[in-house]
């Protein structure tokens, strides 16, 4: 009897453990909900990890950022991220020196090209970092943008 109840207990807690780790290991499913924690993370690597599930990023020349070298107005900085890598499911843009580095992340459908363009605010001169997830691996590109008038505060 004792052994039976012991087994029952371990099975139950084992199941719970599996459920919990499954939840932890996939912080971001495709087309997931708005990643609140990632938009609060003040640390760049943490921001990457919360969106992509890892911060193990390789710089790649297959990821391209198009943005101005000098942005006169930090409130509107046009940026285009494109990649030729296959099977891209998530793309995100980080601004290293903003209060919260994560600016935006995009979940792409299977027919969507690795191309996204948007306009971001930059508090001050900083690196833009684009991170792309292709086949479960992370690739990034970096570009420094000089800001003459900041886009935060006012």
């Amino acid at each position: 009897m004792k052994r039976r109840s012991f087994l029952k207990g371990t099975v139950a807690s084992g199941m719970l453990g599996v459920a919990a780790t499954a939840g932890l290991l996939t912080p971001k499913m495709v087309l997931a909900a708005w990643p609140k924690a990632a938009f609060e993370a003040k640390d760049l690597n943490q921001g990457i990890e919360l969106v992509m599930g890892s911060s193990d990023v390789t710089e790649s020349s297959d990821v391209k950022i198009k943005a101005p070298d000098i942005a006169e107005n930090g409130a509107v900085v046009p940026i285009t991220v494109s990649t030729t890598l296959p099977g891209v499911d998530v793309m995100a843009v980080y601004i290293a020196k903003n209060p919260v580095p994560l600016a935006c992340s995009y979940d792409l459908g299977p027919t969507t090209k690795g191309f996204v363009s948007c306009r971001v605010k930059m508090g001050k001169t900083s690196d833009l970092i684009a991170v792309v997830r292709s086949g479960g691996k992370l690739y990034s590109a970096k570009k420094a943008v000089k800001v003459t008038i900041g886009g935060c505060g006012g």
């Binding site: 087309l31 903003n98 935006c104 995009y106 979940d107 027919t111 191309f115 996204v116 948007c118 605010k121």
Partner: peptide, 26 residues
């Protein structure tokens, strides 16, 4: 009915936001 793109934005996106993207199969 298929989601082509889902964008998650933070406050760092500029006022009156603009987005551009490309997809195939339409």
């Amino acid at each position: 009915g298929n989601k082509v793109i889902v964008a998650h934005w933070g406050v760092a996106i500029s006022k009156n936001p603009y987005i551009a993207f490309k997809f195939t199969g339409a």
